[in-house]
């Protein structure tokens, strides 16, 4: 119990101090990994000879996978998903039985950076794919510009009460470049277990020239690829 109180007091003081300092110095905390959860109501009507919810579900199920997913085009997307919330689950008596009045498209994404830049990037790089998904949602027909899209998503946003980062908060290109380097350097190490110093140094210089550790964008892994695929 004392432990909890200590954490609470020091934690709160620390947080107030940080906020105050940021306010006074005009700095912002470094952007890392963040999560966005949106619940977008689906139009409760038919879309041709299907309901909107059926059409949307089939569209999502049939989206291409991995590097061909439309989400591969969205900058700084680590992992994201779509599902459809048909209803809430009745837990059985004595729990209350209740039902949703709308069905919701749930979009949950884990990304790097601040929300506005992420959403703008999403619209700018995957606008057509986004329309194909969100056209089934209430009031999306009014979205025309980047600003409209950002505002729409924020209106559908629900608050994350805990976001847990078990990975890193680096920009995606840095994560991918690191994975590429880990893979390539591991191979290098196994291939040069018994190489004499002079040859080793030469080989290492060639390795650095080839893999360019300082260049985050090339060569590197292709975002979303489920086989080893290198972008130069």
């Amino acid at each position: 119990m004392m432990d909890i109180i200590r954490v609470l007091v020091t934690g709160l003081l620390r947080r107030w101090y940080d906020n105050l300092r940021n306010l006074l110095t005009g700095t912002r905390p470094p952007a890392g990994a963040a999560g966005l959860t949106v619940l977008c109501p689906i139009i409760n009507d038919s879309d041709g000879n299907q309901s909107h919810v059926m059409a949307l579900r089939q569209h999502l199920q049939d989206l291409p996978l991995h590097e061909n997913s439309p989400m591969a085009a969205v900058p700084n997307t680590y992992l994201c998903r779509f599902y459809i919330l048909n209803d809430v689950f009745y837990q059985g008596a004595p729990a209350e039985e209740e039902h949703l009045k709308s069905k919701y498209l749930v979009y949950s994404t884990n990304f790097h950076g601040d929300l506005d830049s992420y959403l703008s990037g999403m619209w700018e790089h995957a606008q057509e794919s986004i329309r194909q998904v969100w056209r089934h949602c209430v009031a999306f027909e009014n979205v025309r510009t980047t600003a409209d899209f950002v505002a729409y998503m924020k209106k559908c946003q629900v608050r994350n009460h805990l976001f847990f980062n078990g990975s890193t908060g680096d920009p995606l290109n840095r994560q991918l470049k690191s994975l590429y380097l880990k893979q390539e350097f591991s191979r290098f190490v196994y291939d040069h277990q018994n190489t004499p110093p002079e040859d080793l140094q030469r080989a290492f210089q060639a390795f650095i020239a080839r893999t360019q550790p300082g260049n985050p964008d090339s060569p590197t892994w292709v975002a979303g690829a489920d086989t080893e695929s290198i972008k130069t």
């Binding site: 579900r57 999502l60 199920q61 989206l63 996978l65 991995h66 997913s69 989400m71 591969a72 997307t77 680590y78 992992l79 994201c80 998903r81 779509f82 599902y83 459809i84 078990g166 990975s167 890193t168 680096d170 995606l172 840095r174 994560q175 991918l176 470049k177 690191s178 994975l179 380097l181 880990k182 350097f185 550790p213 892994w221 975002a223 979303g224 690829a225 489920d226 086989t227 080893e228």
Partner: peptide, 24 residues
């Protein structure tokens, strides 16, 4: 169940990403 799931690095686990960062 998820209707569409995307990962930027299907070959990597979170262990791999953390170790890759340190290695780099």
């Amino acid at each position: 169940w998820t209707s569409h799931y995307y990962s930027a690095y299907p070959l990597a686990t979170s262990n791999d990403i953390k170790s890759a960062r340190h290695l780099t």
